[in-house]
Structure formats: C-alpha cells, structure tokens
Design a binder for these strands. Structure first.
Lengths: 223, 223
DNA sequence: ACGTGTGAACCGATTCACAGCA
DNA sequence: TGCTGTGAATCGGTTCACACGT
C-alpha cells in the first residue's frame, strides 16, 4: 500500500471524473466495475486509474474489480463531496446567469448560494434559485457566511479589480471565466476557464493535422 | 536555432495566452516587451516563454526584448488566427446563448457562424447575431459550408448522440461543455470544458491546504 | 485465470546554467 | 550589462512489467 507525502495534481483532477462516472454507474444499478471498463468510459488507461487510487488506499478486490457504491463513497470522501460547499458567483451577465442555472455543480455537492452584480436593475431578481445582491453587500456576506470559493464571471475589464476585492474579503479560490490572467497576492487558488483559448487550441491542432505545418522546415524570422 | 519534429502540447496551449497578452499591450501602445515582463502578466516563467518561442524561430533582440507588433503577428500566423475560422454551436440553452454572445472568441478570429437547436420554438430566433436553425439542417449546412469545428452545449443526456452525429457530418473538433466523456470513432479532437469538475478541483485543493494529503509542490498557485 | 497494486523504467515538459549577441 | 536562445539536467507524471490475492 503506497502512500506518498503528496498526490499528483493530475490525479486529483481525474478523481472527479471517476466519481461522476461511478455515480452514473450506480444510477444504472451497476454493482461491480473493473479498471478496464473505466478505461472504455473515460479516456484514462486502466493502469492510470489503479495508480490514482493507490495513493489513497486499496479499494478493489483482486480478480474481481471495484464495488461501485463503496468506491464512489470513498472518492467522495477524498474529494470532500460528502460535505456541501457553498460558492458565490460575481457577475450575473449571460454567462453568469447560465452558471447559476447550471445543474452540473450539484453532482459534486457544490451550490452557488450567493450571487452579486453591480447593475442595480439586476439586484433583487432571482436566478437559479438565488437572489442577486448588489456588490456593496459582497464583503459583509462573505464574512458573515465565511465563504471561501468564488466564480468570477464579470466582464474582462473588471476581472482584475473584482478579483482583488474578493481576495481582500477572504476568498481563497476563484474559478475565473474572464479571458485574462489574474495577478493576485496571497495564498489564493485560481483556475481559468478560458473557453476562447480552449477553442483556439483545437483550431491549432486541426491546423497541424491538416496542412502539416512542418516544424522542421525552418522559417527563420529576423527582426 | 532549435526546431523539433513536433511541438509540446503545452507550448501550443500557451501560445494563445501570449497572443492575447501581446494584443493588449499593442492596444496600450507598448512597442517592446521582455520575457520577464511577460512573466509578471501571465503566470509563465520567462524561460518558459523563450523556450516556447524557440520552437518556431528567433523573434527577439538580445539585450532588448521583443517587438510587440511583430511577435503578435508571428504568433498569430503560427496559431492560424490570421484566417477567420467559422464554428458551429449546437444546443442554444442558457449556456449556448451565453456562448453565442461571448465576445472573447473574436480575439482569435473565431466566429460562431451557425447555431442549431432541436426546439422549434427557438428556431428562427437570432442570438448573438446568428439565426438559430433546426437540427434537421445540421448535415446540409456543415457539408455546404465545409465546417470543421463545433461547440457542443446540449444537455448531458444528448451529448453523446449529438457528438456522433457531428462526427458523421464531418466535424473534426469539438469543444464539449456537457459533463460527460464523449467516446468517438475517427480522427476527431475533443476538448472538455468541464466547469463543475474544475470547480471541484479547486475545492479539493483548498481542502488539502487546510490539512490531510498535500499536492505536489507547485511552481505557482495558478492552475 | 483474472483483475488489482506498485516499484522501476520511461517520457514529455520545465528549469538550470550558461553561451551568444546588442 | 541586459536580455535572448538553448543543450543538459531535472522533475512530474505515465506506462511497463510483474507480484499478489481471490
């Protein structure tokens, strides 16, 4: 039973995919699953799956596989989805309101329980079951409810300043949808959901495959 | 001047961040930039930046830095943003309509030029300057306009079947917003914009910091 | 035989250390 | 001196090869 001082970042990221998969299998009344079946559903090799789990313990039965119910519960505990996590959302534009109604967060026991916008016309309205508050209330609500995690969906030109404010209010993790790299002091985790850059990467890959832009072909450009 | 048979995937991904940064600097009339300044704006070490560029050529002046205008142009050429790429979007729900109005794609010369939904009430309406068509027209439009890239924002339970249809119509790259791993035949690139999983990873990291297992020692706190 | 668990080998990507040039 | 460019060393993560338990 290997146990390390640290866990590969990528392993942590994949655990959530495993959990989602297992929950679906459980819904379909599947009781036992092997690492090779996981490989077919997700794009993760069976060894990868087993290795990932090995950092936390031994959850399978040799010669048999994994108990879906049990493993889901274990991964849930590891990830912390056994506890409800309350999130705030800042910026209720098109994207923000889509996120407020997005059902996918619930799978991980995540709930956007507060939403903020500086547009007074939006304040007071309810979206995705959440009443929108004015930005003025931000600090007080975060402090009072001791919130740690924020989704940032304000226009790009305000992202940096709002992010700084969030950090000053005690927010420790930000999922940033604005297409800009936030530069922040202190021990705050930032994850960028950069849709345009993601799409651009796809275009680039396609370009490589198609016109086989040879990288050995030297196009030396001198200023 | 090093030139390899292929480019690290991560390098390709970062190029789009560089380009966006350079465009902003250009807007602000900055003419020259050094790799160390880049490090401050993006969370990429200066060596990383130089190394990334070195796969494509020598674009800087030693002792000076990089010509913003010129470098932006070169990276644009590498990425293919010098040409307009037309994209389709399938599934005009909350998220889909937010994406149709999302301005960030234009930075990379990407344009959602067709949108599809199977809800006849939505068909014919205009969103983000695009008239929504019925799914029936999917094949014909893709073939006729020779489109290659799709954004998939249908509900999770339809994602797999719609993705298969897209591939059968000739789509070669899919940006998938549904929280499911698409299993597809053929040479199609899939990129998952998995917002819930992303948020879950943040929660996990936060949990680690507070105690239990620790993640790998990180170069920086940005993911 | 079958499927899990894991140290060791391997691979891609990052960082180091320094050469090269203005 | 200042900043770019890059082979070599290193690091994180994946895969191999096989031991182990049922």
């Amino acid at each position: 039973m290997e146990r390390r001082a640290y866990i590969p970042q990528e392993t942590a990221r994949r655990l959530s995919l495993y959990l989602r998969m297992l929950r679906r299998l459980r819904q379909e009344k599947v009781r036992i699953v092997s690492s090779d079946q996981i490989r077919r559903f997700l794009n993760v090799s069976s060894v990868q799956f087993r290795k990932d789990l090995s950092y936390f313990g031994e959850f399978g039965k040799r010669g048999v596989g994994y108990d879906v119910e049990l493993l889901a519960k274990e991964i849930g505990k590891i990830l912390g989805t056994d506890v409800l996590h309350e999130i705030i959302l800042v910026g209720v534009g098109r994207l923000g309101s889509a996120l407020l109604e997005y059902p996918g967060f619930l799978e991980f026991n995540l709930k956007i329980s507060e939403a903020f916008d500086r547009n007074t016309r939006k304040v007071g309205k309810v979206c995705g079951g959440v009443r929108i508050r004015h930005m003025r209330a931000l600090r007080q609500v975060i402090k009072k409810r001791n919130l740690r995690i924020a989704v940032l969906s304000v226009p790009v030109e305000f992202a940096q300043e709002v992010a700084e404010e969030l950090v000053s209010c005690g927010i420790k993790a930000i999922l940033n949808f604005a297409p800009v790299n936030l530069v922040l002091e202190g021990d705050v985790f930032v994850s960028n959901a950069d849709m345009a850059s993601e799409l651009e990467s796809l275009v680039y890959k396609l370009k490589q495959k198609n016109n086989n832009y040879s990288l050995t072909k030297k196009r030396s450009i001198v200023i």
